[in-house]
Design a protein around this nucleic acid. Structure first.
Length: 353
RNA sequence: GGGGCUGUAGUAGAGUCGGUUACAACGCCGGCCUGUCACGCCGGAGGUCGCGGGUUCGAGUCCCGUCAGCCCCGCCA
């Protein structure tokens, strides 16, 4: 709905997001995948449509005819993309009625994931879910176009295949034809990718499902999608440059954020030294500080013995944390224990020493 | 394989030291309302407190078991 359509007679169809009945005037927020549009039903303009609108409930599917009109002075809603217009409805048809949904299909209501999945056909109507799927569409479209521009061939690889000795466990599919035998689902298209390189397809790319039969986490699913690529006759710099270009374009076309390339780079050694992991979240900010040489030969055996045996002692400087209570420090200690720490040594340093 | 947390109305939550009829919100139903937009006001319905057992005069609350969900460790590139 754009300003160009102002004054036009149009027909729109969609789902009823919300009805606001003022006794006289009735407003209906009509939803489709692009957004929400306000319908105004005035009993003086069309009593029949207004009467039908009284029966309308959330998630009814309706079709209306009417005029695209500017909203009256002072009733513009700046929070809505279509907040300056509304449809002055002259005809309303209920295409499908709906039972009351088990939960609110808006972006304000928090609903447990298992409930959302039970009613997935309703959950998929929620604007936030639709936005996510549309973003995903834009991302995969952008990736395919970009990789095509860079000379990559999009080649499909088999899903029902043979297991190969790799890390993750395979999902198995029983074979009807070869009774007692199984197919393995690929944990990644690794083998096929190598096959393609050997055959001379010097740039291959695929957006592809991978399956790993390992225990789950909040951010880890049994099946997931991977952008899989491989290049021949290139060096490290070529790989990084092409991947950075892809990330920049995905952010630009996906969410309109411009990223300047090259991205900041740190070496593996630097990442481990400063953050202790090879995939640091730089927002964390608390860098590890090397203390091994300082604690060597100090009286505190926990540190000194590690340093003497060629180990490493590092600390983080948490500014402003000298005010932490004993309980807070104890809580942090048990938090560290989750990851296998035997203890948490701390020193408070205040302005007066 | 191991550990932790949580299960109360359709939804998401509160419920004190075990004590009378389990609470308010959103949603739902009815009424009122002609410029709202997460409309407003008034009224109403809606509960196997996950399930089973135990302690007790008395259990949403305490104990044991069980089931489900979430999160984490191991595992996973």
């Amino acid at each position: 709905m754009t300003a160009e359509q102002m004054g036009q007679e149009i027909c729109v169809m969609g789902w009823v997001q919300r009805r606001r009945d003022h006794g006289g005037l009735i407003f209906i927020d009509l939803r489709d995948r692009e957004g929400v549009l306000q319908l105004a039903l005035d009993p003086d303009r069309d009593p029949e449509a207004h009467k039908k609108a009284e029966q309308v409930r959330n998630e009814f599917v309706v079709a209306v005819k009417g005029k695209v009109s500017p909203r009256p002075e002072g009733t513009v809603n700046p929070k809505m993309k279509t907040g300056e217009v509304e449809i002055e409805v002259s005809e309303l048809k209920i295409l499908n009625r709906a039972e009351t949904p088990p939960f609110m299909l808006d972006d304000y209501s928090e609903v447990a994931e298992n409930i959302r999945l039970k009613y997935r056909y309703l959950d998929l109507r929620r604007p936030s879910v639709q936005k996510s799927l549309m973003l995903r569409h834009r991302v995969s479209r952008t990736v395919r176009r970009y990789l095509d521009d860079q000379g990559f061939l999009d080649i499909e690889t088999p899903v029902l295949t043979k297991s190969t000795p790799e890390g993750a466990r395979y999902y198995l599919v029983p074979s009807r034809v070869s009774s007692g035998q199984f197919y393995a689902l690929p944990q990644s298209p690794q083998l096929f990718k190598q096959l393609l390189m050997v055959a001379g397809f010097d740039r291959y790319a695929q957006i592809v499902k991978c399956f790993r039969d390992e225990d789950l986490r909040a951010d880890r699913q049994p099946e997931f999608t991977q952008i899989d690529c491989e290049m021949s006759f290139v060096d490290r710099e070529d790989v990084m440059t092409i991947m950075e270009g892809m990330i920049a374009r995905v952010f630009s076309e996906g969410i309109g954020v411009e990223i300047s390339c090259p991205l900041p780079r740190i070496t593996y050694a630097e990442a481990l030294a400063k953050y202790g992991v090879d995939n640091p979240d730089l927002r964390f900010g608390l860098e590890l500080v090397e203390l091994t040489s300082i604690v060597k030969g100090c009286g505190f055996k926990v540190f000194a013995s590690v340093a003497d045996k060629g180990g490493m002692v590092k600390a983080i400087n948490v500014k402003g944390a000298a005010t932490f209570s004993r309980k807070e420090l104890d809580d942090l200690t048990s938090f560290a224990a989750i990851y296998g720490a035997k203890g948490l040594a701390w020193v408070k340093m205040t302005a007066d020493g």
